[in-house]
């Protein structure tokens, strides 16, 4: 016999498919929602329905917004001639939290992976190349993960842009702010040393 009514079991099964949640934590979360029906469950259901209705991918950069063209792409202030290429929308949001970059973004939607059958045509690389001329881009900043797939994708994009006169840069790698050298791995220390700058 099931522990919870089938509707709730179905909700638990759905929640358990979310990143960071397993069957147990999903069960706890659903139980909490049911207990806090007025304060949490109903507003959450309404908010999810609204997001389900309005959320869409920006046709230009791939960001998630409420319109066909997202706020960043619509803003003239963000037309700085710099475009930051990221793997995923979560990376874009992380960059925005830092408030250090005031240009525009381009979300690839993944990285090249022959083993996972993800090729250039599966990513938004052709759209990126089109944008370079359309938006008078002077610099492409590659903010991709320091993994083999991330760096392969970075090399691929750099090769596509080569010869256009557009600068291609990548994020620095090294000591994080507030980081202690003693806790860094040897590779990161090596990268930081190679990228040292005048004090």
């Amino acid at each position: 016999m099931s522990e919870a009514p089938s509707d709730i079991e179905a909700l638990i099964a759905l929640m358990a498919r979310l990143p960071g949640l397993g069957p147990r934590s999903a069960r706890r979360a659903v139980l909490h929602l049911v207990k806090k029906r007025g304060q949490l469950l109903t507003p959450l259901a309404q908010a999810m329905a609204r997001v389900g209705e309005t959320a869409r991918e920006c046709l230009r950069c791939g960001n998630i917004g409420a319109a066909d063209i997202c706020e960043i792409c619509r803003s003239e202030k963000r037309a700085t001639g710099e475009i930051c290429v990221v793997e995923d929308v979560a990376d874009l949001w992380a960059m925005e939290r830092g408030q250090a970059f005031r240009g525009r973004y381009h979300v690839l939607g993944g990285t090249l992976s022959a083993l996972d059958a993800v090729g250039p045509e599966d990513l938004r690389i052709p759209q990126l190349i089109d944008r370079l001329a359309e938006e008078n881009i002077r610099e492409v900043i590659l903010a991709l993960n320091a993994t083999v797939d991330g760096q392969t994708t970075a090399h691929y994009i750099a090769e596509q842009i080569e010869g256009t006169g557009i600068a291609v840069t990548s994020l620095a790698q090294g000591v994080p702010i507030g980081g202690e050298l003693d806790y860094l791995d040897d590779g990161t220390i090596g990268a930081a040393l190679r990228a040292r700058k005048a004090f």
Binding site: L112, S113, A114, L115, G119, P120, V148, D149, Q151, T152, T153, A154, H155, Y156, E159, Q160
Partner: peptide, 27 residues
């Protein structure tokens, strides 16, 4: 080995994208 496995997959699938090969070979 990771980059080589990717390259071997391209070779087996007869992919002929020089930029993709170039990116993996650089790695």
């Amino acid at each position: 080995e990771k980059a080589m496995r990717e390259r071997n997959r391209l070779l087996k699938d007869m992919v002929r994208d020089p930029a993709w090969y170039g990116a993996l070979e650089a790695q």
